[in-house]
Simulated assay, not measured.
Amino acid sequence: MKKLIFALFLISGIAFAQDMKVVKGNFDFLKDQTEINTEFDYSNFTMMKEKKSEAQYVEERTAELNEKTKGNGNIWQKKWVSAKESIWTPKFLEIANVVLAKEKKNINFQESLTTPYTLIVQTVWVYPGWDAGIMKQPAKVTTNLKFVETANRSNVLLEITSEEAPGDQWGNNYSNESRIGEGYAKTAKSLSKLILKKAYK
Rank of each mutant, 00 (worst) to 15 (best):
M1L: 08
K3E: 13
L4Q: 08
I5H: 01
A7K: 04
L8A: 03
L8D: 14
F9W: 11
S12W: 07
A15I: 12
F16I: 15
F16L: 10
A17E: 15
A17L: 05
D19C: 03
D19P: 03
M20R: 02
V23K: 15
K24S: 15
G25T: 10
G25F: 14
N26K: 01
F27S: 00
D28W: 02
F29C: 10
F29V: 10
L30M: 13
K31S: 15
D32T: 12
Q33H: 05
Q33D: 08
E35P: 00
I36K: 00
I36T: 03
F40G: 05
Y42M: 08
Y42L: 15
S43L: 13
F45E: 06
T46Q: 10
M48H: 09
K49P: 01
K49Q: 14
E50V: 11
E50S: 12
E50I: 15
K51H: 14
K51N: 15
S53V: 11
S53N: 09
A55K: 10
Q56P: 01
E59A: 02
E59I: 02
E60N: 07
R61Y: 13
T62W: 09
T62F: 07
N66D: 13
E67F: 07
E67A: 11
K68P: 08
K68S: 04
T69K: 14
N72D: 07
N74C: 02
N74I: 02
I75D: 06
W76D: 14
Q77K: 04
Q77F: 01
K78M: 12
V81C: 00
V81F: 02
V81T: 13
S82L: 14
A83P: 01
K84I: 04
E85A: 05
E85G: 06
E85N: 07
S86Q: 11
W88L: 01
W88S: 06
P90C: 08
P90W: 12
V98C: 02
L100V: 11
N106L: 01
N108A: 04
Q110M: 03
T114S: 07
P116T: 09
T118V: 04
L119H: 01
I120N: 06
I120V: 11
Q122Y: 09
Q122M: 05
T123W: 08
V124M: 08
V126R: 10
Y127H: 14
Y127N: 07
P128N: 06
P128V: 03
G129K: 09
W130I: 09
I134R: 04
M135Y: 10
P138Q: 13
N144Y: 09
N144G: 05
L145P: 01
L145D: 09
V148F: 03
E149L: 11
A151M: 11
R153T: 12
L157Y: 07
L158R: 02
L158H: 14
I160F: 07
I160R: 04
E163Y: 04
E163G: 00
P166I: 15
D168C: 00
D168A: 00
Q169G: 03
N172H: 12
N172L: 06
Y174V: 15
Y174W: 09
S175R: 03
S175G: 02
N176C: 01
N176L: 00
S178Q: 03
I180L: 04
G181C: 11
G181M: 09
G183L: 03
G183I: 11
Y184L: 10
A185T: 07
T187G: 04
A188D: 13
K189R: 15
S190F: 14
S190Q: 13
L191T: 12
S192C: 01
L194H: 04
K198F: 13
A199R: 00
Y200N: 05
